[in-house]
Design a protein around this nucleic acid. Sequence first.
DNA 1: CTGGCCTTAGA
DNA 2: CTAAGGCCA
Length: 467
Amino acid sequence: MRIHWHRRDLRLADNLGVTRTEGTESVVPLFVFDQEVLDHAGAPRVAFMLDALQSLRDAYRERGSDLLIRHGDPRDVVPAVAEKFDAEAVSWCRDYSGLARERDAAVRRELDEIGVAREAVHDAVHHEPGSITTNAGDPYSVFTYFSKKWHDREKREPVDAPSSDDLADVADDEPVPSLGDLGFEEPDAVIPSASTEAARERLESFCEDAIYRYEERRDYPADECTSRLSSHLKFGTIGIREVYDTTDRAHADAPSEGARESVFEFQDQLAWREFYTQVLEANPQVVTENFKEYDNSIAWRDDPEALQAWKDGETGYPIVDAGMRQLREEAFMHNRVRMIVASFLTKDLHIDWREGYDWFREKLVDHDTANDNGGWQWAASTGTDAQPYFRIFNPMTQGERYDPDAEYIKKYVPELRDAGPEIIHSWHEASLTQRRSAAPEYPDPIVDHSERREEAITMFEMARGGE
DNA sequence: CTGGCCTTAGA
DNA sequence: CTAAGGCCA
């Protein structure tokens, strides 16, 4: 009898923690609601997780078993469940973020004390942190070189879901709690389905078609040709081996060399995910500290009004506002737009990236410490492989380039629906009269980009030790 | 030790 | 044209 403690691996198929190739012990699956984790979570993300949990429980029940649901501190609950079932071992899939590592180490100590074997299984990434290093043996802090080695490495094949023979005949009457039970209000955003079936449908349909346009069109938010698998990868409702394997088959079936390259480009995004996982594992302090050290501290502004306008999507920069409103409405934002709004917060509003990271953590279903922190620090020029501080996104140019017909902007900013793309993409230099006649309800720009850009460069030159 | 390459661009 | 810095050969 082995307890498998589910955390961010809410699936049965392609789960290296649940399915073991050796041994015939039966598995008792467990999930623990940990208040410390819930304290750091937002309602959209918890709503998705609860749906994933219900699906996971259904899958176990279909196989004549059940998912045990408990509430409390895992360092008490996990050993208690192990003792109750007289388990020989407890397994879980490794989570590489700092908070999880501290928690898991504490659980490990408790289990050692009562003499229960435990195994932390490498499952969430293809290549575990520390396994891809520079030729000098150090963790990479530049993506390009990491990526080359990541692609060259052999990838493991997916494993099957366990059969009912592998699962313990248990039943549990503790229900999956509601959002309200956990102290959250119902989110305004519509939350997508979190089942493994839903993840597979997304993956399959993405790999039939959009993946072949991915390289060319992924930066155009109106196209919606990204995979939208991020939330499923965050909660492990689909396995990373299954994702890679399916893209590899799309690679084999690609109709042209360009289509093959496009599949490779998508796989490169999977490599980014593993790059940031190993950055966080090697540098757990980046959650709160700049990765890149400047001589002096960066003089971020304390500007609550500007921060609120950014959160509300009321900055008067159309592409920024569209992104921030998509975040509220869908608990999701297109990746290109994430970079634009992050650049705007840090380089135009001069607000600390941590404020933006906190807002994303609260609002995004797919929030992942490693990826979000990596992305924010990249945009803020404080991270690994960071955007140089003097290379600052121009929000108008970005909008014009990646949303030329303002299709994405109009979808999320109804005040601009009757305005033409020309005035939308030159909103910052249009006259007051032009703005009022084109879109009377849409705000004027809250800052002057070219002014703020110069000030941002000065702010970073000071931080670098300039006069 | 050092030159060259490469960055999810902008002015 | 600008221009920082990790990594490699």
